[in-house]
Design a protein around this nucleic acid. Structure first.
Lengths: 128, 128
DNA sequence: GTAGGTGCAAAGGATTTGCTTAAAC
DNA sequence: GTTTAAGCAAATCCTTTGCACCTAC
């Protein structure tokens, strides 16, 4: 692994909440001056491919990612105000989860779930 | 509502499974020769805004939509082979669904869930 | 040594926007 | 009559790609 990829990964791990490629790139440039955009895009693609980054929606046309070292199956909860992210266990009931899927003849192989809401800080700010 | 929007909506309703804007546009052009791409994009934005269309992922950089006349809260199950779509009830347990969310101080306001799998036809084709 | 990564700049391509004309109500 | 949308083309802008050079192993 190259120095750049390592430092990009470290920057990603240090991001607060969800981020765009552009934001990650800016952050990584603090540590790697002259870092090319393409390099960041390629690093993001690699990390997304191996599950180290996860897509959690988009903001104004830009894909949002989160650092996601935890390899277990889980989902993300995004604060719609500040972008803070929390990982949560899969809340889908195990066994008969997809009864309605079976009813229509489908076999479920994968699912994407993302929760949106307000973190405690932003909720309090809102009430103020 | 203009003739074009009506016919675009009708085309969307008639699409088999998930579709891109481009595919919808081609389909709508069969009924509205000379239809502009921008018109289709604007119609899609309007329909997505009022919930008549739902986003269900993407294919090669193009956003995938499904026709979604059912106003009730529900989710979609997409066949990864043929793109066929089935609407399903929300499988998230009502009451204590988001215990882990509360545990991290979040209030959940919204969630996106999309299931992927194989429809009966494609599963049988695969086994053959 | 060689396979994979980097930087730069140019290309690609989906989506949006400005503007004028035309249809809806 | 006004407001809303259509159609066309140009612009936008995120993302990818080609290429020559360099770094990791």
């Amino acid at each position: 692994m190259s120095r750049q990829r390592l430092l990009i990964a470290r920057s990603a791990a240090g991001m607060h909440g969800a981020f765009t490629v552009e934001e990650l790139h800016r952050s990584a440039q603090d540590v790697v001056p002259g870092l090319g955009v393409a390099t960041t895009y390629r690093a993001v693609a690699a990390m997304a491919g191996c599950g180290t980054l996860a897509v959690v929606g988009e903001r104004e046309g830009r894909t949002l990612y989160v650092w996601c070292a935890n390899g277990e199956h889980h989902h993300h909860l995004i604060c719609t105000d500040c972008g803070r992210v929390a990982g949560i266990d899969c809340p889908l009931p195990e066994g008969d989860a997809f009864a309605s899927a079976r009813r229509v003849g489908f076999t479920v192989t994968r699912h994407d779930l993302t929760l949106y809401g307000l973190c405690d800080t932003c909720r309090e700010d809102g009430e103020r």
